[in-house]
Simulated scan of single mutants.
Amino acid sequence: MKKVSLFLPIIVSLVLQSCGSLKNAKNTEEVFWVSGIKTECSAGAGKMNCLNIYKGNNIADATWEFFYAPIEGFTFEEGMLQKIKVRVERLNAKDVPADASSLMYTFIEKIESHVDIRTYLAGEWNVTSLYNKEFNETTNAPSLTIDLNKNRVSGNDSCNNYTGQISNVTSQSLKIKTVATTRRMCFIMDVANSYNKALGEINTYLIKGNNLIFFNKEGKKIVSFTKSAKKELEVSLGGNWIATRIEGAPINRMVKTPRINISLDEMILSGNNGCNNYTAQINKISESKIVIGQIAATQKMCRDMQVGADYLKMLQSSVSFKVKGDSLKFYNKEGIETISFLKVVK
């Protein structure tokens, strides 16, 4: 009995130490990078925007992975790479809700942060050169939209619309796979074919201001883009307009006045020429230049068809524009005014 009494304090001490060790074993610390981009991911029954993390040391060539769990106390900063330290606690299974992580993450400190260069890729771009062939502002050049949230690219190859998946993107490289296009046949397919070939060869990139340059595996420049001004233009150019002059002459008040709606989100012009409804694709647009696709109109017969015919003819010939407040003017390739509009204020 005395022997048991002598060993009891030792046994209790060992048990307590063991429990303490088990408790501490449940808590660890981790250090990893958090991307400046959240990407769409599948979680449970639906989709959500997930953090992306990288646990390696070569951040310039990082392979990112989804991070589904929340990090208590951490603030995501869009466009910023953050290297952070977190505490990781393993929860008891009985305390974990269904479909939830058994690990709880708590933010400890930010070790370093800097700009996530990849975010400069996001947005809409217009081709300026393709395999050393230069494109001017009036050329129907291919376009590219990069959506980093969905890891997707889309655009128009000068003939067909296309979409593709981004398989990997780092601060220096971008890989595109599974490009699908519509099947429309155009009179000239050379540009479209060359552009689709270039998409498959893209390996690395360089961003200089509003210019984006892609290179192949050999480091040869294959295609260059300039940033689209669509978002800024949507504010001033988008919406409904009513025509006031055609070829510099006021419109006869006795006829129905032509109207136009400009949607840069859909890249479509539509409206009524005073008799028939019409629509046309905007193939390309910049701060002052526009390329209008073939205009299609209904074939209704009206008493006065001349104004409508002149209007569509002038609209089709327009290649540039100027917006000043509530005034919009289109011009042909000689710089002569084709149509003048006033903004329709609701």
Rank of each mutant, 00 (worst) to 15 (best):
E218R: 11
C186I: 03
G238L: 04
C275T: 06
E234S: 15
K256E: 14
N203Q: 10
R259I: 13
V235Y: 12
D190K: 06
I262Q: 08
V235T: 15
T178E: 15
N156L: 07
I268F: 02
I202G: 00
I213F: 13
N240M: 13
C275M: 05
R245P: 00
A192M: 04
T170S: 09
A198K: 03
Y162D: 04
Y195E: 03
I246P: 03
G238E: 09
W241K: 07
M189Y: 02
K230R: 14
E218V: 11
S228M: 09
E218Y: 10
Q172F: 06
V191P: 02
I202L: 12
T182C: 13
N273H: 09
I176W: 04
S228E: 10
K177A: 14
A198I: 06
I166N: 07
L269I: 12
F215C: 05
S228I: 03
T163Y: 12
A243T: 12
V235W: 04
I262N: 10
I260H: 05
S270Y: 10
D265Y: 06
N196R: 12
S224Y: 01
I213K: 09
G209Y: 06
K256D: 13
D190T: 08
S228R: 07
T163D: 11
I260G: 06
V235I: 15
L237W: 02
R253L: 11
N160F: 02
A243N: 04
K230E: 12
T182M: 12
C186M: 07
N211G: 09
L174V: 03
I202M: 14
L269R: 08
R259K: 14
N156W: 01
E232Y: 06
N252C: 03
A192T: 05
R253Y: 05
K177W: 00
L237F: 09
Q165W: 10
Y205F: 14
K230I: 13
P250N: 09
N276K: 07
N156C: 05
S194D: 15
I242Q: 14
K220C: 03
T226Q: 11
A249Q: 13
N252L: 10
N161Y: 13
G219R: 10
P258H: 02
D157Q: 02
S270G: 12
N196F: 01
D157H: 01
L206C: 00
T181H: 05
E247L: 09
C275E: 07
A243Q: 04
N210W: 01
L212P: 05
R253M: 10
I166R: 08
V179T: 15
I176A: 09
T170I: 01
G271M: 08
T170M: 00
N261T: 15
T163C: 05
M185C: 00
K256R: 11
I202K: 00
N161C: 03
K177M: 13
L264V: 07
T163G: 15
K208V: 11
F215K: 14
N216V: 04
G271H: 11
C186W: 05
D157T: 01
N160Y: 08
Y195D: 02
T257Q: 11
N261A: 14
I207A: 07
L206G: 00
